[in-house]
Structure formats: C-alpha cells, structure tokens
Design a binder for these strands. Structure first.
Length: 203
DNA sequence: CGTTTTTGACCTGCGC
DNA sequence: GCGCAGGTCAAAAACG
C-alpha cells in the first residue's frame, strides 16, 4: 500500500497534507461507459446498486443483528445479542434509511482523499469484475458511513465509489477542491433501478 | 506502540 | 434445501 501513492502521486500529489490536486476525469466528462463492449448475455449485473432498499438497520451502536460470527463462540460469548452458532436474528428495528450515492470517477488511484478517515474492513471479488471490491468505513466514532470502491476491469481508469450513509462530523481537512472534483465527476445518485434497467456500467 | 491493512472464515439473502 | 454471491468480522501482520 505504500506504493500506490508513489506510483501516481509522485507528480500529482507532492504533499497530500495540504494540496489536493487530483487528476480525475480531467476533462472528459462524457464517455465513461460507452465504448467498449459488452459481453455476458446472462450476467446479473445490476446487483451493485440495485438493492439499495431493504437492507438496513444494524450498526447504530452496540447491537448488530447481522454481525454474528459463529466461530467467536470458542471464547467468551459475552453478548446475549450474539447469535452464536446459529440462527439468531432480529427484526423490527429502527429503519434507518441510509442513502447510497455512487460516484463514477476516472482516476488511477482507487482511494481518493475526500477529507475523511477511512479504515478498510474487507475486500471481496465480485463476479463480473476482474478487480476486487474494497470496503471502507469511517473511523470517526458514531459515524457509520461506509464506502466501497470498485474499479472496472475493462477500464482501468474508471473507479466506482459508493458512499453509504451520511457523515455526522466535520471534515478533517479543508477540501474546497472537493466540490471542484464533483463537478468533474459523473455523479450517479439514485436508487436502484436507474441503472439496472438499462445499460450496463459494469460490463 | 497504536493504528490500519491484510486475509480467511463465516453469515445472510436470493436463486434455482 | 442447497449453492452462489456479496458483505462483514476478527486476528495477526505491517506500517508510521
């Protein structure tokens, strides 16, 4: 990981502490998903943003219904809330709606410094993509914002970043540049069917 | 030394 | 009911 900054940042980010010079789209605003190809007739594609609704509730504090890991039972099973070993599930919780926003950017680096501190908590490969998807979480206490980064296999330069939730704390750094960045990016925000219904940004 | 990354295991939902 | 795909956690390693 120490390399990624260098391979690209040498010229673009001399010192990340203060300057935010990104080279995203840098000019090309249209395109992104047209040229190229498509394959896989029966791909299930749209799962990415398709199911925004439905999954929710969890986090928020101490209780995490969906978080049961079975193997932890080996040690002290502290919480009664933990469905150790089997089926345990909670329902009817507060339904926190967490908006999801997907940004499709064009950059060499997967992780763009948006001013927040992110901790990586997982990485998984998705079916139709060659590159794995990375899962990040905001390190701020109480801030349950999640973010996942996916880079398209066909276009190495295209990176899809999906934010989930809203930050409840101010940004650490001053990125007035960020607005400028957004302007340069193609922003897709929308719940679901927007994409899956037509076009395929993932092929 | 503290924090973050890495990686495998495990869980849940959906489809067949 | 089982299997696949996706998502998350947790322990250890790596890094500053």
């Amino acid at each position: 990981m120490e390399n990624y900054h260098m391979l690209f940042g040498t010229a673009a980010q001399p010192s990340s502490s203060t300057s935010n010079s990104y080279n995203f789209l840098a000019g090309s605003s249209s395109l992104l998903r047209d040229h190229d190809r498509a394959q896989q007739p029966g791909h299930s594609g749209g799962s990415f943003l398709a199911e925004l609704s439905g999954n929710s509730s969890k986090d928020g504090g101490a209780s995490s219904p969906a978080a049961g890991r079975g193997e932890s039972s080996a040690g002290p099973v502290a919480e009664a809330d933990r469905p150790a070993g089997g089926a345990g599930k909670r329902k009817g919780e507060k339904k926190e709606r967490r908006p999801r926003y997907a940004f499709q950017t064009r950059s060499q680096v997967d992780i763009l410094d948006d001013g927040y501190r992110w901790r990586k908590y997982g990485q998984k490969a998705v079916k139709n993509n060659k590159f794995p998807r990375s899962y990040y979480r905001c390190t701020h206490q109480g801030c349950n914002v999640k973010k996942q980064v996916q880079r398209l296999s066909r276009d190495e330069g295209v990176v899809v970043t999906t934010y989930e939730g809203t930050h409840t704390h101010p940004i650490e750094k001053s990125n007035d540049n960020f607005e400028h960045i957004l302007t340069q990016m193609q922003i897709y925000s929308g719940m679901g069917s927007n994409f899956s219904s037509s076009h395929n940004m993932f092929h």
